[in-house]
């Protein structure tokens, strides 16, 4: 709350103290459900059966977290999520970088037409293709496989669009210099330009990773065998039979465990995520 450079601005209701106070109160309300979840996760299930108001009193325990260690399922789902998210991210980065470079720098027949068609792809929602995709993957026996879970996300036009923008932002003089050395397009791409796009790769990579990690509908219909569940689907499945499930405390601990990876990624790469998400929204 120290000094700020914009003191000469009339507050214009922006950055006003009262508003800030309301925002702080609002943030407490927003975090209350999270605190409740964490509270439940550190209570013994038997005690919660008698009444959840016991969350507000001692004793607390880590027994639910220890139980996750013994429940091999959650770890299996965690591993599946990791494989799928990393695989999909790698695929998207390779495809989008190659295509983005070509759209931004190279000339080839129908370049503009193809780019416009790809842009149209941005407007196609998952719901319009998911039924046909499900059938196609059935033909090729790709359901309940890692490849089957990874592939659909790679068709997203967003990455291509983002990488095209990034390649366009690199000054043309850099390629010109390489061209004087008679470098081929592939060489310029690989040796000269790709290293310059590392921040962009990070942005797109983190965005894709989070997207794949949190994906719900496709894994729900594609991974039907319990051992192929991703963590997102696994958590959903253990929620459905709530009453006779492993208990509120255990479920809460599982949820905290499942959200830790994304929250850690978020805290470390916050700037990249915000850039990617806002860029993706505005297009």
């Amino acid at each position: 709350m120290s000094t700020d450079q914009t003191t000469y601005r009339p507050e214009a209701l922006t950055g006003n103290r009262t508003l800030l106070a309301i925002a702080i109160v609002f943030s407490v309300v927003m975090m209350a459900p999270v605190a409740w979840l964490v509270g439940l996760s550190i209570k013994d299930n038997k005690e919660l059966m008698l009444g959840t108001e016991s969350v507000f009193a001692l004793p607390y325990t880590l027994v639910n977290y220890v139980n996750i260690l013994y429940s091999s399922q959650a770890f299996g789902w965690f591993f599946n999520s990791l494989v799928v998210a990393i695989g999909q991210t790698t695929g998207v980065l390779i495809l989008a970088s190659l295509a983005g470079y070509a759209f931004a720098r190279l000339e080839f027949p129908f370049r503009r037409t193809i780019f416009v068609i790809v842009l149209f792809g941005l407007a196609v929602p998952e719901q319009a293709v998911i039924i046909a995709r499900h059938q196609m993957f059935n033909w090729f026996g790709l359901h309940n496989s890692y490849i089957g879970l990874m592939l659909p996300g790679m068709s997203s036009a967003f990455g291509v669009f983002l990488m095209t923008q990034f390649f366009k932002a690199i000054p043309k003089e850099i390629d010109e210099a390489a061209l004087l050395d008679n470098a081929s397009p592939l060489r310029i791409f690989w040796k000269v330009l790709l290293p310059l796009t590392l921040p962009a790769q990070a942005t797109l990579g983190i965005f894709t990773f989070l997207h794949a990690w949190n994906d719900y509908w496709w894994p729900l219909i594609s991974a039907t065998r319990k051992e192929m569940f991703t963590l997102t689907i696994g958590i959903a499945s253990s929620q459905t039979n709530f009453a006779q499930s492993e208990g509120l405390g255990f479920l809460s601990a599982q949820a905290v465990f499942a959200s830790l990876p994304v929250l850690i990624v978020y805290v470390i790469f916050q700037r990249h995520i915000v850039t990617a998400v806002s860029g993706g929204a505005v297009k």
Partner: peptide, 8 residues
């Protein structure tokens, strides 16, 4: 993810 949000 949506499943964490709904659980919360």
């Amino acid at each position: 993810s949506v499943t964490i949000v709904t659980l919360i």
